[in-house]
Simulated assay, not measured.
Amino acid sequence: MKVFLDCEFTQLNQYSKLISLALVSESGQEFYVELTDTYSVEDCSDFVIQYVLPQLELPRFGQSLVETQDSLRRFLGGFAEELEVCSDAPHWDWGFFCDLACADHQPWPVQVVSQPTNLTSLFNQVNAEALEQVELCELPHHALLDARMLAELFKILASSLILSP
């Protein structure tokens, strides 16, 4: 089963810190968390301050790093089938996912494939004419909404046989 991953983080550099993470499975299960203790506003770029932070709902979705690690492992453990983590930015998102999934020297979750699928590479293989039939909108820079959009785009392309397996 494919699980679509998206993260929001403080800035686009080697010092970035995780703000929020979302997973949306092909079957509709969702995991979403906003971290409460991994960053400060001072760590954030102007873009993140303007577009990402105002969308957060910390009273509803906020968790500490330790709580997030536990809840992510519970979420992943709820799947019997093998999970293929798909991201449009695995060079950023995958590291954050791995840090949470294997925290405190926990073993790798057995049902999760150990390498991500790069959706950008996959989507680049799509027939350009066929892709014109799909209405694309700008990602809202909210991890859960972005992960949902990635899952929906994949579903549309796969069901239209536009995306080769």
Score class of each variant (00 low, 15 high):
90 P>A: 00
43 D>L: 04
40 S>M: 05
107 P>Y: 03
19 I>R: 10
61 F>V: 02
129 E>W: 01
59 P>I: 05
84 E>V: 10
39 Y>C: 00
132 E>H: 04
51 Y>Q: 11
109 P>E: 01
72 L>H: 02
147 A>Y: 08
67 E>H: 04
148 R>E: 07
16 S>D: 06
34 E>S: 01
12 L>K: 12
47 F>S: 13
60 R>G: 01
126 V>D: 08
38 T>Y: 10
32 Y>R: 01
110 V>F: 04
2 K>Q: 15
71 S>Y: 02
140 P>H: 06
140 P>N: 05
47 F>M: 10
165 P>T: 07
153 L>G: 04
160 S>G: 15
72 L>K: 00
59 P>R: 11
119 L>S: 03
48 V>M: 05
91 H>K: 09
95 G>M: 02
12 L>A: 12
103 A>L: 09
83 L>M: 12
137 C>F: 11
125 Q>M: 11
34 E>C: 06
104 D>L: 12
160 S>E: 14
133 Q>W: 10
99 D>S: 12
151 A>W: 13
138 E>Q: 05
17 K>L: 10
160 S>V: 07
18 L>Y: 03
25 S>C: 00
137 C>M: 09
28 G>S: 00
19 I>A: 11
52 V>C: 07
103 A>C: 08
104 D>V: 00
88 D>K: 13
126 V>Q: 03
36 T>C: 08
98 C>A: 12
67 E>K: 08
48 V>K: 04
86 C>P: 02
59 P>V: 07
100 L>H: 03
7 C>A: 07
66 V>C: 14
81 E>P: 08
129 E>S: 10
8 E>R: 04
126 V>G: 02
54 P>M: 10
84 E>R: 09
5 L>H: 09
94 W>K: 02
118 N>K: 08
42 E>A: 13
54 P>Q: 08
98 C>L: 14
80 A>Q: 15
123 F>A: 09
6 D>V: 13
74 R>T: 04
8 E>L: 07
10 T>A: 01
103 A>S: 14
104 D>P: 03
123 F>P: 01
106 Q>P: 01
156 I>Q: 13
76 L>S: 02
28 G>K: 01
117 T>M: 14
19 I>D: 12
92 W>K: 02
48 V>C: 12
111 Q>W: 04
13 N>P: 05
146 D>A: 09
55 Q>I: 06
30 E>W: 11
151 A>I: 09
68 T>F: 00
7 C>S: 08
130 A>T: 04
6 D>E: 12
50 Q>N: 09
160 S>H: 14
152 E>A: 11
79 F>S: 06
41 V>Q: 14
113 V>Y: 08
96 F>M: 07
148 R>W: 03
120 T>C: 05
153 L>W: 09
